[in-house]
Design a binder for these strands. Sequence first.
DNA 1: CGGATTGTTGAGTGGGTTCAATTAAAGTGG
DNA 2: CCACTTTAATTGAACCCACTCAACAATCCG
Lengths: 244, 244
Amino acid sequence: MTDQESKLTRRLRYGADLQQADVERLEKISTSALFFEAHTDLVRQLDPPRHVHVLVEGVACRYKVLPNGRRSIVAFILPGDFCDLHMTILRHFDYSICTLADSRIARLNGGEVDMMLATFPAINRACWWSTLVDEAVLREWLVTVGRRTSEEALAHLFCELYTRLNAVGLTQDHVFRLPFTQTTLADVLGISTVHVSRVLTSLRSSGLVELQDRLIKLPDFPALCDLAMFDATYLHLGRRNGSR
Amino acid sequence: MTDQESKLTRRLRYGADLQQADVERLEKISTSALFFEAHTDLVRQLDPPRHVHVLVEGVACRYKVLPNGRRSIVAFILPGDFCDLHMTILRHFDYSICTLADSRIARLNGGEVDMMLATFPAINRACWWSTLVDEAVLREWLVTVGRRTSEEALAHLFCELYTRLNAVGLTQDHVFRLPFTQTTLADVLGISTVHVSRVLTSLRSSGLVELQDRLIKLPDFPALCDLAMFDATYLHLGRRNGSR
DNA sequence: CGGATTGTTGAGTGGGTTCAATTAAAGTGG
DNA sequence: CCACTTTAATTGAACCCACTCAACAATCCG
């Protein structure tokens, strides 16, 4: 963190061509981050929006709970991710957000955000990009949950996490931190925790995944992509896009 | 259609307070609509974006196909819906769009859209709203596919379609057109067509759904909502939201 | 050290799948 | 206008993926 560009800047560079002034504005955000313990709700379903959040370090998730208690995780929020960017448009949240691990998170109020978006066109564009990529991820998850087997699904999720974390420099040699429990994976994929355990065992025995102590390694990433039918284009991390 | 406000205007009114000038601009869009036959692809995965589409009449869907041929429908596009509004931001589509029934659709190019958004702030806001609601629907679908039983899932989908169509005046007395096959429903819910048929039979025998000749009736909407755990707030159709 | 999560494994069950046959409805062409 | 084909929907039978319930191991933590 010290010394180099924030994850936020690194990530938004995929969405727009940021100039020095843009970067300086963005870097200010990360320095204001506050600490939140794991399993803290940042936002609750039906709340009126108050802040825009930027996750600086850690992990969080967007989730919804049905009246009967079943939980569904509908997004992972990783370092460099904006959330609820357009709080001023909707009157209330239709989801909750909670930290999955200890995290550092910056909060901006509506005025600050509007000002920033109005003053820095490249940031504005990057924020749009970020919102649209969130939507693209949601679509891919829908495919995963609806039309992939649980083995393909888990493999796909790992491929996505690897790719997203790699984009902000949080992987080394196909190893990265997975700082949450199998219950979390189950609530993403819409399966039971018992089954997550079994599928994981199967992936381990195929030599595609090594996982212990919250550290995951993907020794044969191409083979895993193959199994998962993972194609990273939906993450829109391709070389910076001109407007052509 | 003749004589009254277009579905587009009706829908966007939920997202912003439109003035006379805004409405006039929007009405122009619908009059330029072209006819497309059922099962025509408007957009194909990996295409570079060319147009913004507005569905004026009919139905379309956004879908993705896995290499092994399994298909997943990730959105319904209904009358009054914008799609690919922010084509200038992403370099290529990560999904395809095709009409499910004969439809009338307007196409705008990037320049027209940018001009409109820059000139009419209320329309700009409404378009944002529309994009965010699309995302909210995607989240709810993920809950449906991941954590609802297939009976709840189908019921939920019907509740959503009813509510969305009702919002633009396309229902009468809890009856509306469902102009597509059970295969479509299967690809939305991530189940087999055979099972759609069975679940539908079950819903029929509970007296919650009547369906024939592409016309569906929901005789006891509250009971259906109950079964589906449907709560319409995610559609953000609540009375017009001021920016407070 | 005890208590609480978290993960693993077994056994039995069930929701949903596939395959296949049948009916019904909707085009199509002579 | 009717036979022919195609598409859509329904139903049955057998199977299987994933679920629940339950016991147990492992790890973490105060």
